[in-house]
Design a protein around this nucleic acid. Structure first.
Length: 806
RNA sequence: GCCCGGGUGGCGGAAUUGGUAGACGCGCUGGACUCAAAAUCCAGUGGUAGCAAUAUCGUGCGAGUUCGAGUCUCGCCCUGGGCACCA
């Protein structure tokens, strides 16, 4: 028999699987139970597949093969999130159309995925930039539009005056444009928003229904950021004292209101401009407003010191004690959150404290802690009120309730729940994205283009170089098309959608990717959705998962789907690091190319090593020196197969069967729980044990079956050498023979006062008395018990004996 | 600052969830084969002492609970990642 050589067999099986349609699935056949295992689909970049993809796609591929062998009909699709900035930037630089780049890159990704042995049916793939897909992205947008889930609002954007274009947050480096280095300014432009905040509460509550990592759930909850509080109206006493004017603030800590020593408005707060004439130091205030306006979000985030300006001639009255307080405008208060104004309590809020220190404002303590020793500020939650008139001596919690009621009764405020979550801005002034299917009447009224005009295609006659308007605005074809359909004077919407929209519903389309009549036939939705297992990187913890969840909830509301959550089970894969434990990056030059590794070690070894080196959710250190371990393992499997073919043992060694069956049991459980690292080590143990022991072909075939999801190529090759004509993929998962699971004799440690002093061999079902007797006869145990009195003996069946002695 | 993780041999990691710490793999040491090397095979491999049996220390540090702690509790230290002035 020849030596194991991955180069000779892997391509062969990849071709065979494809030609025989091994990965095809009849999506209408209902005879078996379904399972839907989903990958986060890649953006097809010019660099090709990276090692992170390799890991996560291998993980889902193993699960797919495993589930199939267990008798499920498994949907395991793949596609491409192909709209996006890199292709457009490349087009601006080289003039090559993004469609062309994208197509080329997709072909390369598919080649790479096949070379890893991934079991996708690419005839059923989806490509988000393909009109047959974005047709339905637009259709869903239309549904949202008609059902009041979309609205047009003003949004603040980063604008590069030199490039004449909107810049994404990640392209702003230190307040400057990544490409040309010009200073970025803030520009307000109108855009479309999805009403994600309508679902804020549901997005928190429904996390209880899914099996996700706890930290991911927590992060989602924190991101949505629910806070319960009260609004409070502070009357404005400007010089001519117009009593009907108020500053309304939002606070979660109304119990601290007697400690309020000033009030702060966000620079965006409309009141500032409204009372402009009454502001004595308007010049100074105006200067600050302009300054704040030109700051990018990043600048404001990164500011080390709080800044602000006192508004002279303006005071705010605390409704509880009539105290007249100074009013500031400061950019540490955000216009879009709460009411855009806060009551500042420097004694009990860190930001207010910092600000008060800098501007020498009074700090008034109104909460006394139960435990004065504690320096933990959080404990103010449980403090007692002081210096708060009739509310003094109440607990914080009681005071919060009573004060809110008092405010409500006097029309000075009300209970309110705020969310940190904002509505989702989906408009992008880009070319390479899904066109927003909206047109405007000559009067400027927005109208959905209508189902009959979908797909509302991306025009071809567009110059990519930015000139200050959205690229689509330059298309004569788009303008002509709009006027032809809707009439003279109608204008097309020229923005495209955020690419997160494309990826917020793609998992629905996989169930019915070629449907031309609907986004997915209802029987298919019913059969395949929701996703049973979703595997992908933790970097999508916030946005992607939240948006996809929003989509499903919004679609359910308008009757398009009938489930609440898209992904029932979610698991993350860890990062792949270089051999020094560092992140791989182009700039560091430490990027490992999967193609090279597959050529060198083979797809089976790459798959196996990825899974073996660390638990799936942990970081994997890619060290080429270590991969030889799994390669040697595969060689041993190969050699054992050769030996069996040559000798054809009549029966298997019983000792080996007592290892094989526990191995099958453990590997089955490990794969089911995605603990691939221990599954591999278990199989290594078996192969090591099989040395010099007889094993029949039939028993070895059971082993091949459990190895096949992880290392499919070598297993199929051996299967064929064994004279089998079918494919391992899709065969039945081996069952465990109970009679070989039970251990006959076990080694039992004997402890004296918790320390192991001897080991005895006893039968597995030894009685407590027998075991104790044997233990006490041991020489070393006797020695350790000398001069001591045995207090008690603890016997843990099949585990150990501990003799407690004094 | 806040949130979420993680500290176990020379290295990646395992430990049935409170029951033999270091499975499996890499590396290393010695031996076999070879003119030699590579590959392969055999043996060994946490530290210290000992020829050995064995003893002793040992899961970031310090306490605690327990017959028994890598695992539980409390307090520290170090470290990785994410988010950012959300009132």
């Amino acid at each position: 028999m020849k030596k194991y050589d991955h180069r000779k067999i892997e391509k062969k099986w990849q071709k065979k699987w494809e030609e025989s349609g091994s990965f095809k699935l009849d999506k209408d056949d209902q005879s078996c139970e379904k399972f839907y295992v989903l990958d986060m689909f890649p953006y097809p970049s010019g660099e090709g597949l990276h090692m992170g993809h390799t890991e996560s796609y291998t993980a889902s591929d193993i699960f797919y093969r495993f589930k199939r062998m267990q008798g499920f009909d498994v949907l395991h699709p793949q596609g491409f999130d192909s709209f996006g900035l890199p292709a457009e930037n490349y087009a601006i630089k080289t003039g090559v159309h993004p469609a062309e780049t994208t197509q080329k890159n997709i072909a390369n990704y598919i080649r790479q995925m096949k070379s890893l042995g991934l079991s996708y049916d690419f005839e059923e793939k989806i490509v988000t930039s393909d009109p047959s897909y974005y047709h339905w992205t637009q259709w869903i947008f239309g549904q949202f539009f008609q059902n009041d889930l979309v609205e047009k609002k003003i949004q603040k954007t980063n604008w590069c005056p030199s490039c004449q274009t909107v810049i994404a947050n990640e392209q702003v480096v230190g307040g400057e444009c990544e490409r040309c280095g010009s200073e970025i300014v803030q520009k307000e432009i109108p855009g479309w928003f999805f009403k994600t905040t309508d679902f804020a509460q549901e997005l928190i509550d429904d996390l209880e229904k899914v099996d996700w990592p706890e930290h991911t759930k927590k992060n989602q909850i924190n991101w949505i950021g629910k806070s319960e509080g009260t609004t409070v109206k502070f009357a404005i006493n400007s010089t001519d004292s117009k009593e009907e004017d108020f500053i309304e603030v939002f606070t979660t800590r109304v119990d601290t209101i007697f400690g309020c020593t000033y009030v702060v408005l966000a620079p965006e707060h409309p009141l500032v401009l409204k009372i402009k004439d009454e502001i004595e130091n308007w010049n100074e205030v105006e200067k600050y407003l302009i300054q704040a306006q030109n700051k990018t979000e990043l600048d404001r985030m990164e500011a080390k010191e709080k800044t602000g300006v006192k508004i002279e001639g303006l005071t705010a009255t605390n409704p509880f004690n009539g105290e007249k307080l100074p009013v500031f405008v400061a950019d540490y208060v955000i216009g879009s959150y709460g009411t855009g104004a806060v009551m500042a309590v420097p004694a009990h809020d860190e930001r207010d404290w910092e600000f008060a220190k800098k501007y020498e404002l009074p700090i008034k303590k109104v909460i006394k802690l139960h435990d004065e020793d504690s320096e933990n500020e959080c404990l103010t939650e449980n403090g007692i009120l002081i210096n708060s008139e009739k509310f003094s001596n109440l607990s914080s919690q009681q005071a919060r309730k009573k004060m809110a009621t008092w405010l409500q009764e006097n029309g000075l405020g009300k209970k309110q729940i705020n969310f940190r979550l904002r509505d989702w801005s989906v408009s992008r002034q880009r070319f390479w994205g899904c066109p927003i299917p909206i047109v405007y009447s000559p009067e400027g009224e927005a109208k959905f283009v209508g189902e009959e005009n979908l797909p509302w295609t991306l025009p071809q006659d567009v110059d990519f170089v930015p000139t200050g308007v959205a690229p689509l605005a330059k298309s004569a074809e788009l303008k002509k098309r709009t006027e032809k359909i809707f009439g003279q004077g109608w204008q097309p919407e020229c923005d495209t959608m955020d690419t997160f929209v494309d990826s917020s519903w793609y998992f629905l389309r996989y169930a019915d990717p070629k449907n031309e009549k609907s986004f997915c036939a209802s029987e298919r939705l019913k059969r395949w959705l929701p996703v049973d297992l979703y595997i992908g990187g933790a970097e999508h913890t916030y946005m992607h998962l939240l948006f996809a969840r929003f989509f499903v909830k919004a679609m359910k509301k308008i009757g398009l789907v009938d489930f609440d959550e898209p992904f029932l089970q979610l698991r993350h894969q860890g990062m792949v690091l270089d051999k020094n434990g560092k992140k791989m990056s182009k700039s560091k030059g430490n990027v490992v190319n999967p193609d090279d590794m597959i050529e060198k070690f083979g797809a089976d070894s790459v798959r196996l090593y990825m899974m073996f080196a660390a638990p799936l959710e942990d970081e994997v250190i890619w060290n080429e020196e270590n991969i030889v371990g799994v390669y040697r393992f595969l060689e041993k499997v190969w050699d054992k197969a050769g030996e069996i073919l040559k000798v054809q043992p009549k029966s298997s060694d019983e000792k080996l069967l007592r290892i094989l069956h526990p191995t099958i049991e453990k590997v089955t459980a490990d794969i089911a729980g995605l603990h691939y690292n221990t599954a591999v080590s278990e199989m290594m143990k078996f192969i090591n044990a099989s040395k010099k022991l007889d094993l029949t072909q039939s028993d070895f075939e059971d082993f091949l079956k459990i190895l096949s999801p992880l290392a499919p190529h070598i297993c199929e090759e051996i299967w064929e050498m064994f004279g089998r004509e079918d494919y391992l993929i899709g065969l039945e998962w081996p069952s465990v023979k109970e009679e070989y699971l039970k251990r006959l004799e076990i080694e039992m440690p004997i402890q004296v006062n918790g320390k192991v002093r001897a080991k005895i061999f006893v039968s597995a079902d030894v009685t407590e008395d027998e075991a104790k007797e044997t233990a006490l006869e041991d020489e070393n145990i006797k020695k350790h018990l000398e001069g001591k009195e045995v207090v008690k003996i603890i016997f843990v069946p099949e585990r150990l004996i501990n003799i407690v002695a004094k």
